[in-house]
Design a protein around this nucleic acid. Structure first.
Length: 899
RNA sequence: GCCCAGUUGGCGGAAUUGGUAGACGCGCUGGUCUCAAACACCAGUAGGAAACUGUGCCGGUUCGACUCCGGCACUGGGUACCA
């Protein structure tokens, strides 16, 4: 009887659920291990074959760790607040909660079919009030805290008050304003990324290339009163602590760049005939004598004041132009140089010369001081600006050719630079800073590219911000008023006056009189601390108990996509550090090790329609006609051969299609693309599980290639893995009956098993899951050849295989006579003794090219091997009468004869 | 532009510290079984008739290089007037 995966998989999934096989306790004599997947947003489309890749890998690892004697925390949940459910609600009027519930049920059903060992009793949903109560609670803690630069830690805002001058004499409004300047969650007028299509502001990392990450709508800069989180306070710690993390270099590098620390100095230029001072930030104070103009961002506060009457019109015009230019336009034509002269001058602090003040939109208002000292000789942007407006270019560092290009390298000798002349750049930087500080012109300073995170969203489906306004002063709710639940609204759209959807809620006022905050939290709020909630997800009194947090510490292994590099992975580090500062948790980093699984791409299939006909030409002949390629459903194509009948039935319009075939077949074209509905290349895991079984899906996903690499999905390869499972089953059966022998194993059988134990162990430790599937195949092929059905071999093999193919492993384990799940068996240990061979088959090579093989005893000495090899007839054949110059013998590895 | 990762048969991909390049699987070819087909099983499968040549390209180190070094090209991802 063939292996009936449908029956067996169903049976064990039910068994695991019933017996709570994967339930994890917060107390154990075993060492702990925390394996976490990035939880999914439950979208309406359901899971495709790419989603479970990381989950399968983490599940294998979790199961492996259990076999190795660890108490393993391996939970799953849903990041269930978000835009798609809300947009669906806008279109249909259906409450996002209902959509979310349906989608979660569908996700759960799909996940359950794959046989994951999640402890579902710890499940979290970020949109549940029992969860977001604590997200709101953390927000209140952030509001009530400030970052003390002396202790380099967050502290209660109470410790700040004594440091504020005349605090007791200030009005309530003044107190609130001054504290808001320090609170870690604060309200301020800031430039935000406004997306009018989405009707909300977006954080910097939600904007890609000037358009919204979701939907691709245009984004503009707008000044708005907004809640923000002071992540910049943590910039330095976020940067330095990266070093200690076992994360991929690319993610660490992405975070370093995002934080963007740059060290330089501030420098003051006094405006000619005025009291005003323009402060700039530069990383190249050594080039101070190369300054030929100063450029301000069009939004700079002094612009109007500095503009001379003659320049007023053109400056005004320029400001309007810059304002109306969207981010996207600005990015699209970076090379287009625009600017205008203000008519005013600053005085060079060292030479006393007049330096013109210009406006240019290549200077960003949000970075540094919004003003730069332009050194066209040694900065490419200043150079381009100077060339365009015909401004002087002064050489102060030798090494380039300024007639062609600026010389930006930080190497070379200083010239034309008074007291810096003759120094090299490094020394000149040092000296210039010293002089600048000495004369009180400026200070050494560190700047970060990282911006504070805008926290308010003008959306409905998110956590309400637990704030109300009393006389315009923001007040947070008290802890016992949480959860602050999302009110019902009649529509999920902004109000006629442009207020967020929450403004529609009826009779929704604090104590019946004070207005609540109408913004909700961004999507990343709930995910910034969820790893902590899993530790103690049913706790109603705390977000996580001290005991649970102390026991589980942080994530030992975190698996998820690299797209979260500068979003989620930065925020979760920030919140972890914050909660650690306040003493709620014992760790300052969320995850020790992080692995980014690659993307599984789809392989799209194409048919080629001849222009203006309903005729389709096979791939090989398409160049003979004028054709249009059309995406077709990959599920009606097998090995690039189109199932013509299925195609005709696929859509009404193809019913009467005609074909030009090659060799009787219609061959489709194919291309590797992102898996997406619109490209008709989505493969659903349900279909694979239905056809081949969950174990087969698990093994095949791992077999596809290295976990971290992106690779295309091609279902046709799955038959190899499916055959392997059948072959494995046959090892334990004689015809239809389970048949296992109690005889002792032979040497080759033991060798095959122990070799596999060794390989699988190192493969799992190295997250090289693809090669472990190969190794299982090799082992089963060998044992099949030996006709081995011995318990001594086949029992450890079941355990070894159980993390990868848990269903068949449970079934075989059960048949082997065990009543307990294989989950808590003991991982077999490799006994090296069985691997040792007495002879080694030496490859004999000449000048590094292998020519033949010769077996020698492993104990034979280097000298003896050399002697023996030189006596061989074959050796003489390849020597062709010449005398070898050198013979290299590496014992039990290789013989190389140099001629 | 900058940063990161990569480039090995028809395809997905193997190859501890430099030591038999192409494991394992798909696909393909031939065969056995069958009236036939599917399944299964067996054999072959980098190129070349061979000598030989082969891990993106050029060069180097070495007895020996997919692996190390220098230069270049290409692909994928991230990021960007950050002063």
């Amino acid at each position: 009887m063939e292996y009936n995966f449908r029956e067996v998989e169903k049976k064990w999934q039910a068994h695991w659920a019933q017996n709570k096989t994967f339930k994890t306790e917060n107390k154990s004599s075993k060492p702990k291990y925390y394996v976490l997947d990035m939880f999914p947003y439950p979208s309406g489309a359901g899971l495709h074959v790419g989603h479970p890749l990381g989950y399968i890998a983490s599940d294998i690892f979790a199961r492996y760790k259990r076999l190795k004697g660890f108490n393993v925390l391996h939970p799953m949940g849903y990041d269930s607040f978000g835009l798609p459910a809300e947009q669906y609600a806008i279109q249909t009027g259906q409450h996002p909660e209902i959509t979310t519930k349906t989608n979660i049920a569908r996700y759960r059903e799909q996940l359950d079919k794959i046989g994951f060992s999640f402890d579902w009793e710890r499940e979290v949903k970020t949109s549940d009030a029992s969860y977001y109560k604590w997200t709101q609670w953390i927000f209140i803690q952030l509001f009530n805290s400030w970052y003390n630069p002396e202790t380099k830690k967050a502290e209660s805002i109470e410790t700040l008050i004594p440091k504020i001058k005349n605090y007791s004499s200030l009005s309530e409004k003044e107190r609130s304003d001054i504290l808001l300047e320090h609170r870690l969650a604060y309200l301020s007028n800031t430039m935000v990324n406004w997306c009018s299509q989405l009707g909300t502001v977006l954080a910097n990392e939600e904007v890609k290339e000037g358009v919204s990450e979701r939907g691709g709508y245009p984004v503009e800069r707008k000044l708005m009163k907004q809640w923000s989180l002071r992540i910049t306070a943590y910039a330095d710690r976020l940067l330095t602590d990266i070093e200690g993390l076992d994360w991929t270099e690319s993610i660490k590098e992405a975070q370093r760049n995002w934080i963007g620390k740059s060290e330089g100095t501030s420098l003051k230029f006094s405006v000619q005939n005025s009291e005003d001072i323009i402060e700039v930030f530069t990383t190249r104070p050594d080039t101070i004598f190369g300054v030929s103009f100063v450029t301000l961002a069009p939004e700079h506060e002094l612009v109007l004041k500095l503009t001379t009457p003659e320049q007023k019109n053109s400056v005004q015009e320029y400001i309007t132009f810059a304002k109306n230019r969207s981010e996207r336009e600005r990015m699209a034509d970076v090379k287009k140089i625009t600017g205008v002269f203000t008519g005013s001058y600053v005085i060079h602090p060292f030479t006393g010369k007049q330096i013109p003040i210009w406006l240019g939109d290549y200077v960003l208002a949000g970075y540094g001081t919004g003003a730069v000292m332009a050194v066209p000789g040694h900065d490419s942007r200043d150079y381009a600006f100077a060339k365009h407006f015909n401004l002087p270019i002064i050489e102060v560092v030798l090494g380039g050719d300024l007639s062609k290009d600026s010389y930006d390298a930080k190497e070379g000798k200083l010239v034309n630079s008074d007291f810096l002349n003759g120094l090299d750049v490094k020394a000149a930087v040092k000296k210039s800073i010293a002089v600048i500080e000495e004369r009180g012109l400026g200070k050494g300073k560190t700047n970060f590219r990282l911006r504070d995170a805008i926290f308010g969203r003008q959306r409905y489906w998110g956590e309400p911000i637990p704030v109300y306004y009393q006389n315009g002063i923001p007040q947070v709710l008290s802890e016992n008023e949480l959860p602050f639940v999302l009110p019902e609204v009649d529509k999920y759209l902004p109000t006629e006056t442009g207020e967020p959807p929450l403004a529609r809620a009826k009779d929704w006022k604090y104590k019946g009189e004070f207005e609540y905050e109408y913004s909700t939290m961004p999507g990343w709020a709930g995910s910034s601390w969820y790893f902590l909630r899993y530790m103690d997800s049913r706790n109603e009194n705390e977000f996580v108990s001290k005991e649970a947090a102390n026991y589980w510490q942080n994530i030992d292994l975190y698996i998820g996509g690299s797209e979260h590099a500068t979003g989620h992975l930065l925020y979760v580090r920030f919140w972890t550090k914050f909660l650690n500062d306040l003493g709620y948790i014992p760790v300052s980093e969320p995850a020790k090790k992080l692995i980014n699984q690659g993307m599984i791409q789809g392989v799209s299939s194409f048919v080629y329609r001849i222009a203006n006909t309903n005729k389709y030409v096979s791939f090989g002949l398409k160049n003979l006609y004028e054709t249009t390629p059309l995406h077709i459903d990959v599920n009606i194509v097998n090995n690039n051969i189109l199932d013509i009948d299925a195609f005709k039935n696929w859509r009404e319009e193809y019913k009467n299609a005609e074909f030009i075939l090659e060799e009787g077949k219609y061959i489709c074209g194919s291309e590797v693309e992102k898996m997406s509905k619109s490209k008709w290349n989505v493969v659903s895991p349900d279909l694979i599980v239905e056809q081949y079984g969950a174990d087969c899906l698990r093994l095949y996903e791992m077999f596809l290639g290295p976990l971290e690499q992106s690779k295309p999905w091609n279902t046709s390869g799955i038959s190899g893995v499916s055959n392997f499972i059948r072959k494995l089953w046959r090892l334990y059966h004689d015809g239809d009956t389970f048949y296992i022998s109690e005889d002792s194993a032979t040497k080759p059988e033991l060798k095959s098993l122990h070799k596999t134990i060794k390989k699988i162990s190192s493969d799992i430790e190295n997250f090289s899951f693809n090669t472990s599937v190969s190794n299982f195949m090799i082992c089963v092929n060998e044992l099949t050849e030996f006709k081995c059905n011995k318990r001594e071999i086949l029992e450890p093999l079941v355990i070894l295989l159980s993390p990868y193919a848990p269903h068949i492993a449970e079934e075989l384990w059960n048949k082997l006579g065990y009543t307990e799940s294989v989950t808590y068996a003991t991982f077999p240990i490799c006994i090296d003794e069985y691997l040792i061979e007495s002879v080694f088959n030496y490859p004999v090579s000449f000048n590094g090219k292998t020519r033949f093989f010769q077996e020698y005893d492993r104990s034979l000495s280097k000298e003896d091997v050399e002697k023996e090899v030189l006596l061989l007839e074959q050796t003489h054949k390849y020597l062709e009468g010449k005398i070898p110059k050198k013979v290299i013998v590496v014992p039990n590895k290789i013989v190389n004869i140099v001629i």
